[in-house]
Amino acid sequence: MSDYMEETGDPFTGKKKEELKKFLEYMGLTYDEQITHSIVLRKEKEIIATASCQKNIIKCVAVSEAYQGQNLLAHLMTSLIEYFYGMGISHFFGFTKPQNKELFCSMGMYPVAQTEKILLLENDKNGLEKFLKRLKKETQEQQKCKVENRHENGIGAVVMNCNPFTRGHEYLIREAAKKNKWLHIFILSEEQSFLTTRERYQLVKEGIQEIPNVILHQTSEYMISPAVFPTYFIKEKAKAYEMNCQLDIQLFGECIAPELKITDRYVGSEPVCDVTHTYNQCLREQLPCYQIRFHEIPRKTYGDQIISASEVRKKYAENQLKSVCGMLPESTWRYLERKKNENGK
């Protein structure tokens, strides 16, 4: 590799970022603004290859056609893997076009799920199997100290961010729990601003203690948050989000639901956020293909206002948390008050 110079950015900014964006555009890709780390290889100041990641998700990998077949991809992947291990990341994923499958597999990646337009890979050959075993073990352990709803036969599921856990989330869970023998609650594990994954999980756990037939899980990367859906290699940007929804729903319908015998999935109605509304529509259309019933529950209101976690975050930032106290269960309210005081807000 003596002919090439390697540069890294966490991420790149300014002129170097613009150069990377232009190279990716030339290669038919779009720079992903959520990137946290990038590697570029240059020859005589020109970018000839690149790879990036968003935390533990590999994105925006490209090698100039004139330099393909020279093991540049192997060099990029080795550098990325060294970066992951240096950051304490041992499990990582990649999204790409299905036609790149052989190339990525030759670099030690293993397919997880594939649609016509998108391929999801990971570096652990048995990663998905381990995740499904974990879900089953969590289910069996929690059922020992829970009580099933003997009046119903279905097994329900809800997937939530809960950033933070509100009375709207609580209402959706209670309504779904009434209609099922058991209800699985999946808390998206992607780290977000405001509350950490651990904080969100704990607030949900405290908020649902009185509901006897619920089972709580963290999702791992096999249940994908809309925030990390890749679009950088999809030319039809208007349809990109729907394509990613298809991948997420396929993983749920083919792998997760059968393992837990899930028959029904519940969402809250979404009158505000277009992204969530689109995802709900995809669920409505595609879940029946996997013999899973879809249910949309009207959002709970506080006075004449729809209960919204984003509104709670906004009022917290403005030091007006008391104005939305009615949107929060007691346990969430107490935690946010304590957090605010500790931060000196």
Rank of each mutant, 00 (worst) to 15 (best):
M107L: 12
E254C: 06
Q291K: 15
M223Q: 14
I57D: 02
K21C: 07
R198N: 15
G88V: 12
Q305W: 08
F93D: 03
F95S: 02
K125C: 15
K137E: 15
Q114G: 07
Q99T: 14
M77F: 10
M5W: 03
G303M: 08
S106Q: 15
T301N: 13
S64D: 12
E190P: 05
L29E: 10
K55Y: 15
I155M: 09
V275D: 14
E242D: 14
T301D: 13
F23L: 08
T278H: 04
V214L: 10
Q281G: 01
G94H: 03
L135K: 03
A51V: 06
T276C: 09
P288E: 09
E116R: 07
F12G: 01
Y290T: 04
F93R: 02
K315D: 15
Q142S: 11
R134K: 14
Y316G: 03
M109K: 04
E206S: 10
E191G: 11
K322I: 06
G28Q: 12
R313F: 06
Y67A: 06
P11Q: 05
I155T: 04
Q192N: 12
D248K: 01
M87P: 07
K144Y: 09
E236L: 10
T115W: 01
Q142I: 05
K261R: 11
S79A: 15
Q99I: 15
V312M: 11
I35W: 01
H91S: 13
F194N: 07
K55F: 12
T219V: 05
A113M: 12
E6T: 06
C60F: 03
Y4D: 04
N341L: 11
F194A: 11
Q99Y: 15
E221W: 00
Y302W: 14
I234S: 03
V159F: 04
P111T: 00
I307P: 00
F23Q: 00
L80D: 05
E242I: 04
T8Y: 07
Q291F: 13
Q291P: 05
Y171V: 01
T13F: 15
N244Q: 08
N56R: 04
K59H: 09
F23N: 04
K345N: 14
I48H: 03
Y302H: 14
N180S: 13
F186V: 00
I297T: 05
D32N: 05
R313Q: 03
G168E: 05
G9A: 07
K339M: 14
H169N: 06
A113E: 12
S2M: 11
C53M: 08
S64C: 09
F93C: 09
G168I: 02
C289N: 15
L283R: 01
P98V: 11
M223W: 11
K181D: 11
E65N: 15
R42C: 07
I89T: 00
K133Y: 12
H217T: 06
T8L: 08
V61W: 00
K339L: 15
Q286V: 02
Q142R: 08
E175H: 04
E141S: 12
K144W: 06
V267T: 02
T219D: 08
K59M: 10
K235F: 06
H37K: 01
P230C: 07
A317G: 12
H75W: 08
S64E: 07
K300Y: 00
K345H: 12
N163M: 00
L29G: 01
Q246S: 11
N123I: 02
C289D: 15
K339S: 10
T263A: 11
K17S: 10
G94R: 04
N341A: 14
K133H: 13
C53Q: 04
L203C: 07
